[in-house]
Simulated scan of single mutants.
Amino acid sequence: MTELATKPLPPRKKRLRAKGLASFGYGMLYVLPSLLLFGLFLFYPMIRTIYLSFFRSDTQGNPIEFVGWENFSHLLQSSIFHESAKATFLFVLYTVPPGVLLALTLALLANQKLKGINMFRTMFASTMGVSVAAASVIWLFMFNPAIGVFNKMLSTVGLSGVQWLLDPDYALLSVALTTIWMNTGFAFLILLGGLQNIDRSLYESARIAGVSDFYQLRKITLPLLSPTLFFITTVTLINAFQTFGQIDILTSGGPMDSTNVIVYSIYKDAFRNFNVGSASAQAVLLFLAVFIVTMLQFKLLEKKVHYQ
């Protein structure tokens, strides 16, 4: 048995193994810059955040005392964190389904072969070229209770104005409306590209068979567009959980913490209250929430995706 175990490999197998190791080494050499960047800007911050979530830190973010699960237990018992979690999930609910539906509708309209349709395609996709700060300032003026366009529209039909960003009942909806407008351009372009990749001969066969447009939408367009819809829904969902810029500019988490989503709560704890341990614990919980929701989405919705 010992002689068989120590028997040297044949020369051909040695060459093949050496060639495989050399190929692996060359491959790792090519991906090394990417691994370094991911390690520096993704993996290290994530590991550091998990580490800090178990400590009480000073104002500089340096850990000073190990507290174990205390930061997490305090958050789970905090009514402020509960309100932040509620605001986050409501914000996701307000932005993701309406945003995807709006982008899909615009893509279906822009996919028609009509004269001048390219102008409308450019208009629908134009929000991609507007930064978060610029878009937030534009909508800040539109929501202004005195000179904003929305209150002007209400006054023309005899209705009283609304404090869009100062009323807890309207603030989160207002920020959600801004976010939908900002994200429409990207989702529209991706969905339009998916529509244009569908074989046109399928529609020609359907028209020859005399089926209705609604039947074509339900049996041809949506099934063949399902991979693109799944991608857009997943990306939009993750982005909704991470929304920060427009909330910071429009409401700063108010009024009465009605727009204090978890990401903004992390920012306040880390850079205003200098409680890095609590902020890190919130970041870990947010990561777990996004991970679970994304996995559920893959588990439940991917079954309905048609890749061919």
Rank of each mutant, 00 (worst) to 15 (best):
R218C: 11
G193I: 12
S23N: 09
F141E: 13
R15A: 14
A103F: 02
M46H: 06
D199I: 07
F91C: 10
L37A: 11
R121A: 01
S57F: 08
D213F: 11
S280M: 03
V92K: 02
Y30A: 11
I80L: 04
D213W: 13
F41P: 07
A103D: 02
I50H: 00
S78I: 01
N62G: 05
K113N: 15
L177F: 05
M1P: 09
L222H: 14
S23T: 10
A240E: 11
F55P: 00
S278I: 04
L229F: 05
K304C: 10
F43L: 15
N62K: 06
T88M: 09
F214L: 14
M153H: 03
D257C: 00
N183S: 14
K115S: 09
L21T: 04
K268G: 01
V261E: 13
G68T: 04
T156D: 11
A87W: 02
Y170G: 01
Y267C: 02
T234R: 11
L192R: 03
L75R: 05
L101T: 07
V211Q: 12
S205I: 09
R17F: 15
Y94T: 03
S252R: 15
F271H: 11
L36R: 04
M153S: 06
K113E: 15
A107V: 13
S280E: 01
P145A: 14
L76W: 14
L101W: 06
E70N: 06
L32Q: 02
G185D: 10
L4Y: 11
P63S: 04
F241K: 01
L35Q: 08
V235N: 10
V96D: 00
T243R: 14
L102H: 08
T251P: 01
E83A: 10
A133Y: 12
E3N: 13
V290G: 15
G39Q: 12
S265F: 05
Y94D: 03
G39V: 10
L75H: 06
W164T: 00
M28D: 05
S252G: 15
V137T: 07
L296R: 08
A176P: 14
S79R: 07
P227I: 07
S23G: 08
I198L: 07
F287E: 00
A5D: 09
S73K: 04
L29F: 13
G116D: 07
Y94W: 12
K14R: 12
T251Q: 00
H82K: 08
F150G: 02
L75K: 03
S278F: 01
T233P: 08
P10M: 04
A135R: 02
L300S: 06
K152W: 05
L159N: 02
I238A: 10
G25Y: 08
S78D: 03
H74I: 02
N183H: 13
W139K: 05
I232H: 09
T294A: 15
